[in-house]
Structure formats: C-alpha cells, structure tokens
Amino acid sequence: MKDMTARLNAESLRARLAGPNPPRLLDVRTPGEFATSHIAGSYNVPLDMLREHRDELRNHLNEEVVLICRSGARAGQAEQALADAGFRNTRVLEGGVMAWEAAGAPLNRSEKQRWDLERQVRLVAGSIVLTGVLGSLVVPGLQWVSAFVGGGLVFASLTNTCAMGMMLSKLPYNRGATCSLDQVVSQLAGDRR
C-alpha cells in the first residue's frame, strides 16, 4: 500500500482546487451518501464500481486524482485498487468529507438527508447484537449470533473492510440516482481541464 505522503488534508485540497491545475475529485461513497452532501465538482464513482472498472477508469484519468469518502477508509481502498491497476497519481482526502466539513469547507447539500453507510452498519450490527442477547433469555444459545457479529466487527476492523457495509451499499436506499460507468466516463471526458 502507498505511504501516508499520498494523503492530503482539507486545507491543502482547498488550495489545490483554487490553483491553476486542480485535481480531479472522485467520491467513492454510495450514490445515496453522495446525493446527501458532496464537495462541489466531485464525481461519484462508488467503490464497488471503481473496483470493478478500474482499468477503464484509469484510461480516463490523466491528471492528479483525489479520492474522497466519509472518513478516508474507503478512499484508501479505492487508492489501492487504482494502484493495482497501475495508476499512481492518486491522493486520499485525509479524514474524508468529515474533515472537509470540520475545516469549514463548503459542501453541496441536498434537502433530503440520508444516513451514511457507517451509521447504518452501527444500527444493523447493534440491533443484531441486542436482539441476540435479549433473545437468548427466551431461546438459549441465541447469544452466539451476537458473538458472531462481534467477531465480524473485529475482523472488519483488522482488515479495514466491512462485509456488512458492502451488503448495505447494495440496498436501494443507498443506491440513490445511480449512473452507469458510461455516464461517469462521459462526464470525466467532457470535463477535461
């Protein structure tokens, strides 16, 4: 994996965006998260689409690319996927949209707010654990479901992946107004600087 020099903080990104050769911004969150709020000028290329079509995307990204997500974790995974495809001119917005907003930088917001993927995972995992523990009072052994979910969360933390998050990202709630790879590529090609 690339070292931390490939990270860019919010202040540095703001300065680069105001400069003569601003980087391309790819937001790898779900379409639902992107629709709720995003940095102006960014393109939504969900992480699963980026992984699946990284070779095609690489052919349309000649300039520096800054990858964005909620906190930086998914953007780091996107950076690795693009690096594996031979693309080296990427950076990750350190702390993601949360750090961008905390720095007082502007976000385009929708009136319709959606829960971000991490919050959804906490709700689902917490609900399963609580149900398993309380249900074990009636059905002996049900607490093992809670143990399984806890183990999955530990694994997710150690590997910086989340199977539950990947499953939730496929739900219609998170899909929002999706666009095809062809639409993304035509937008990238049409916006050459």
Results as ranks from 00 to 15, higher is better:
Met1Pro: 11
Lys2Tyr: 12
Asp3Gln: 08
Thr5Met: 06
Thr5Ser: 13
Arg7Gly: 07
Ala10Met: 13
Leu13Gln: 06
Ala15Pro: 03
Leu17Gly: 06
Gly19Asn: 09
Arg24Asn: 03
Arg29Trp: 04
Arg29Ser: 06
Thr30Asp: 00
Thr30His: 00
Gly32Asp: 03
Glu33Gly: 03
Glu33Met: 02
Phe34Ile: 05
Ala35His: 02
Thr36Lys: 04
Thr36Ile: 01
Thr36Ser: 13
Ser37Trp: 03
His38Ser: 05
Ile39Ser: 02
Ile39Ala: 04
Ala40Leu: 09
Asn44Ala: 07
Asn44Trp: 13
Val45Asp: 02
Val45Pro: 04
Pro46Gln: 12
Leu47Val: 07
Met49Asp: 15
Met49Ala: 15
Arg51Val: 12
Arg54Pro: 00
Arg58Leu: 09
Asn62Lys: 14
Asn62Val: 08
Asn62Gln: 15
Glu63Thr: 11
Leu67Asn: 00
Ile68Met: 02
Cys69Arg: 01
Ser71Thr: 15
Arg74Trp: 01
Glu79Lys: 05
Gln80Trp: 01
Ala81His: 07
Ala81Phe: 02
Ala81Gly: 12
Ala83Gln: 06
Phe87Trp: 10
Val92Cys: 14
Gly96Glu: 02
Met98Ile: 12
Ala103Leu: 09
Gly104His: 01
Asn108Pro: 05
Arg114Tyr: 01
Trp115Asn: 03
Trp115Thr: 12
Leu117Gly: 08
Leu117Thr: 05
Val121Cys: 12
Val124Tyr: 04
Ala125Asn: 02
Ser127Tyr: 01
Ser127Ile: 08
Ser127Asn: 01
Ile128Asp: 00
Val129Gly: 04
Leu130Asn: 03
Gly135Lys: 06
Leu137Ile: 10
Leu137Tyr: 13
Val139Ser: 14
Pro140Met: 09
Gly141Lys: 11
Leu142Gly: 05
Trp144Ile: 12
Trp144Arg: 09
Ser146Ala: 12
Phe148Ser: 12
Val149Trp: 02
Gly150Lys: 00
Gly150Trp: 01
Ala156Val: 00
Thr159Gln: 05
Cys162Leu: 03
Ala163Lys: 11
Lys170Phe: 06
Lys170Ala: 14
Leu171Cys: 05
Leu171Asn: 05
Tyr173Gln: 03
Gly176Met: 04
Gly176Tyr: 11
Ala177Leu: 10
Thr178Arg: 02
Ser180Tyr: 09
Asp182Ser: 15
Gln183Ala: 15
Val184Met: 12
Gln187Trp: 07
Gln187Thr: 08
Gly190Asn: 07
Arg192Glu: 14
Arg193Ile: 08
